[in-house]
Amino acid sequence: MTVQDLYEKLKAKFPAHIVELSETKPDPYIKVEAAGILEVVQSLRDEFEFQTVANLGGIDYIEEKQFAVFYHLFSYTHKVVVALKVFLPREDGVSVPSVASVYKAANWLERETYDMYGIRFEGHPDMRRILCPEDWEGYPLRKDYKTPDYYRGIPVPLYFEGDSSAGGGH
């Protein structure tokens, strides 16, 4: 089974949710409407034998004023990775349905996405930061993120400014 075949089958099954197959090279992705992602992922696992999630995370398309959440699902039966992508408006507090009820791996991966981009996942059992401290301000992987000078009175080292003495301030 190729991604093209899968796209056609999904398109026939979920005409309202599946938008298009991208032209990106070398790996295409299937664009999915945010509202339908849980249903599509559930069906991919139960009917198309995509047993596992290989990757999940966020992207900040700052030029297009969009966030994206991507899902790489893998099937041991068909030996194929399918990439799904959901586009969201680039706003604070934007959210997408959680798929943690389908794949347990999504629990931590979605938490990481929230931590890095501030994208919330509806229905997630434990929507907290995971890598940054819980009182960290801002979302580091956003393209317009500015490293703060201080975190609770502790100087934050800057690596990309000034001379080569990285980790300055100590």
């Binding site: 290989a54 990757n55 995370g57 992207i59 900040d60 991507f70 790489h72 347990k104 791996a105 629990n107 931590w108 991966l109 990481e112």
Partner: peptide, 13 residues
Amino acid sequence: RIKVKSPCFLNIS
């Protein structure tokens, strides 16, 4: 954008 899929991250989860 580079997203690393780390095996250990999922192992410990």
